[in-house]
Simulated scan of single mutants.
Amino acid sequence: MLTRKQHELICFINDRLNETGVSPSFEEMKEALDLKSKSGVHRLISALEEREFIRRLPNRARALEVLRMPERGDAKVATPAKADKSTPRPSSLPSPANDVVEIPLHGRIAAGTPIEALEGSTMLPVPAALLGSGEHYALEVAGDSMVEAGIFDGDFALIRRTDVARDGEIVVALIDDSEATLKYFRKEGAMVRLDPANRSYDAQRYRPDQIRVQGKLAGLLRRY
């Protein structure tokens, strides 16, 4: 049996997924359930996850999947949607206004030998669920040196802007202010080492003054 709030939350998530294909944000869940803080949402989601009603999708911020719905005998609670029940639901799915954002697409970035990172004015629509806080941009991946990290030629790397990185993070590194590459960032003594995720490629070593971190990998988009 689920608690009333757990039941309300899974119904709200399920309705939103059916309508838009994108799970609601924690802020939207907090408001829909009239909770005082998002920590309450986290507790409810963890409880539903433990009971195997939902699961979090890996490598995607806030993305949830409903595995099963409560049985009819569970607490009968109206879903938090405030729409007038007398109004029929449209047959076609609406285009969500707030669940897709556009971020700048700045050309192609090497996942092998460094190539120039091209600046451009093209915008790329991205599901908001793939992005966290901060400013983001996208780069199209060229090359195969990150395939063992699940990053393939033609993927769109979603990058959160930052100029700092910790060991082991995948970053956009600008080399000598002219070329950019997508690699694991590591410090090796007085040097900076950029590691590929493909055994066919060697690590690249540079002086710290040769490298500027321009962002960290936040997510991926792939076309099929």
Rank of each mutant, 00 (worst) to 15 (best):
C11P: 03
R205Q: 13
T122I: 06
T20M: 11
V126Y: 01
S25F: 12
A110R: 00
R223H: 14
E19A: 11
R56V: 05
E135K: 10
G189V: 07
A97Y: 12
L2E: 07
G168A: 12
G21M: 09
L124T: 09
L124Y: 13
S95T: 12
F185M: 00
N198G: 14
L124N: 11
I115N: 05
G168H: 13
T79Q: 04
E148L: 14
A97W: 06
T3M: 15
K82F: 04
R51H: 00
P208Y: 11
S86R: 14
A173K: 04
L130I: 07
T181C: 14
I115Q: 05
R51F: 02
D153P: 00
L131I: 01
L194S: 12
P208W: 15
Q210F: 06
V172L: 15
S92I: 15
K183L: 10
H136N: 12
I175F: 00
E169V: 09
N198F: 10
V171D: 00
E31M: 11
A97E: 11
I13S: 00
I45F: 03
R4G: 02
N98W: 01
L67T: 05
D99Y: 10
A83D: 00
E119H: 14
R222F: 09
K30C: 08
S178I: 11
T122L: 08
T122W: 05
Q6T: 07
G134W: 08
V171W: 02
V126W: 05
M146P: 01
K38M: 14
D74Q: 08
K85H: 06
I10H: 07
R222N: 08
E8A: 14
V164D: 11
S46Q: 11
A203Q: 11
V77L: 02
A32I: 03
E50V: 07
G168S: 12
V164Y: 13
S46A: 11
D195R: 14
M69H: 09
V164C: 02
R56F: 05
H106I: 05
Q6R: 15
R16Q: 15
